[in-house]
Amino acid sequence: MLRLYFVVFYGQERINKAVKTHIHESPNGMLIPLYILAALSIVAGIMNAPEIFHGNKWLENFIAPVTVLSGIHLDHATEWFLMSISFLCIVMVGVFAYDKFVKKGKVPQNDEALNDSTFSKLLRDKFYVDELYEMLIVKPAYSFSTLMSTFFEEKIIHRATNGAGRLTLFLSGKIRKTQNGFISYYLFAMALGVLGLITIFILF
């Protein structure tokens, strides 16, 4: 944030002349909401000010059901220690950014032109979370969908239903041939049937 702030507002000027003539303070329509937001951001900080500053825990009490389980109480020394560390870090980064972008007037390069270390590349590519998500979730989901619709749906579900119809037609084609209209065949079939029934009755 400090890098952004110093480069934009205090850094070396890089605006071309045509654009420069248009620059002016923002209109009230933008300024008023910004005033309100700025005021509220301070209020939000005070709402849950640390105990050493006699903070009231308004925020914590307000969202009590959520925070009741945490039950963490820090002694004052730890509170001082944590606050000092984070404050010190912010100051250090601020000084570094001021020195680099305001005093020395360095202009950050375009991302494309950058040939930098692995770490800043990792930061610039957002730790590759998007790529990981694409690889682990999106692509497998689509591949699975293609597999299901081309294989399971088409080859198994549809074939099973259509196959039942085809099987009926096939069997009907075969069995139909027994109905050939010759009485002698029917008599023969009847004799076979009677013989079969007699055999069953004798055996069982």
Binding site: A141, F144, S145, M148, S149, E153
Partner: peptide, 10 residues
């Protein structure tokens, strides 16, 4: 689940 998976690539 099944119908939703198939709908994904229609």
């Amino acid at each position: 689940m099944y119908a939703s998976v198939i709908a994904l690539t229609q």
